[in-house]
């Protein structure tokens, strides 16, 4: 698949628009099916920040995202998402899942305008063009590749001009090349639009490539909160990148070894349902 990104989109402007909102999770505790997933979890995310959340399978990172958008309700604590309110008067949050969740019975363009009035069709076409799929607007989702479907899902979220974009391992099921392409696309739209982004991933390199801050969750708490102080776009080859990746990985490894001997320290890239 050829990279069809708009060059001016990829080159980040000097200052980002202030579209993002801050996110505050204060002593949040969540139990699912009687098992405590998060306990007294506390994290603050600044407006416009890009935060990556990493951790082992089942550490509660997906639950964390789902609680921010209201798909899970915490038993204790407080979740506050900025002051921004969208067109429907609700917090302006969109989420991307590991599977694209496109409606198979709608063509690509109607999928992008889901939940919007027909007056948003020009905007939807523009965003489809940004993700490089303008020529597929009239196709069925079943005819698209996995990477293309995720780009449509990204377009569907972007049409709503979200103040906060939650990314629940959206690249987990993609092949390596498509992942890198999608990472560039996500970084580009984040830079241009200025929303706050929270990315859940099990790929530490991906977290370092994209995020301002990498938060490691272990045992339902923040185990590590590392600021990534490197200019964008970041290259995996640099010594600083490798050192940071090593630091985070060894921390995960240590915690994992203390917990259970012999288990892999990070989940493999399988389609885990959390």
């Amino acid at each position: 698949m050829a990279t069809i990104l708009n060059p001016e989109l990829v080159a980040p402007p000097q200052s980002r628009p202030a579209r993002g909102v801050s996110v505050l999770l204060e002593d949040v505790s969540i139990a699912l099916g009687g098992r405590t997933v998060l306990k007294n979890f506390h994290v603050e995310i600044a407006a416009g920040e890009f935060v990556a959340i990493v951790g082992r399978s089942g550490c509660g990172k997906s639950t964390l995202l789902r609680s921010i958008i209201g798909l899970e309700t915490p038993q204790a604590g407080r979740i506050a998402v900025g002051e921004s309110v969208d067109r429907n008067g609700k917090p302006d949050i969109r989420i991307m899942f590991q599977d694209s969740r496109l409606l198979p019975w709608k063509r690509i363009l109607p999928n992008v305008t889901l939940g919007l009035a027909t007056s948003f069709i020009p905007e939807a076409k523009r965003v489809l063009d940004q993700v490089g799929l303008a020529d597929r607007a009239r196709d069925w989702p079943a005819t698209l590749s996995g990477g293309q479907r995720q780009r449509v899902a990204l377009a569907r979220a972007l049409v709503h001009d979200p103040a906060l974009l939650l990314l629940d391992e959206p690249l987990g099921a993609l092949d390596a090349l498509t992942r890198i392409e999608m990472q560039q696309l996500i970084e580009a739209v984040w830079t241009n639009r200025g929303f706050t982004a929270v990315l859940v991933t099990h790929d530490v390199a991906e977290a370092i490539t994209l995020a301002d801050r990498v938060v490691l969750i272990e045992g339902g708490r923040v185990a590590l909160d590392e600021v990534v102080n490197m200019p964008r776009p970041r290259t995996r080859g640099s010594a600083k990148f490798a050192a940071l990746e090593e630091k985070i990985l060894s921390r995960v490894l240590n915690v994992a070894q203390r917990n259970i001997e012999g288990r892999p320290f990070l989940e493999t890239r399988s389609r885990d349902a959390q």
């Binding site: 798909l71 429907n88 969109r94 899942f97 409606l103 709608k106 889901l114 939940g115 569907r156 709503h160």
Partner: peptide, 19 residues
Amino acid sequence: GLLEMGRTYGLSGWRLYRE
């Protein structure tokens, strides 16, 4: 999964049913 997605996009009631 599609129902959950629809709800996060503000669909409910008759619209969720129809779409």
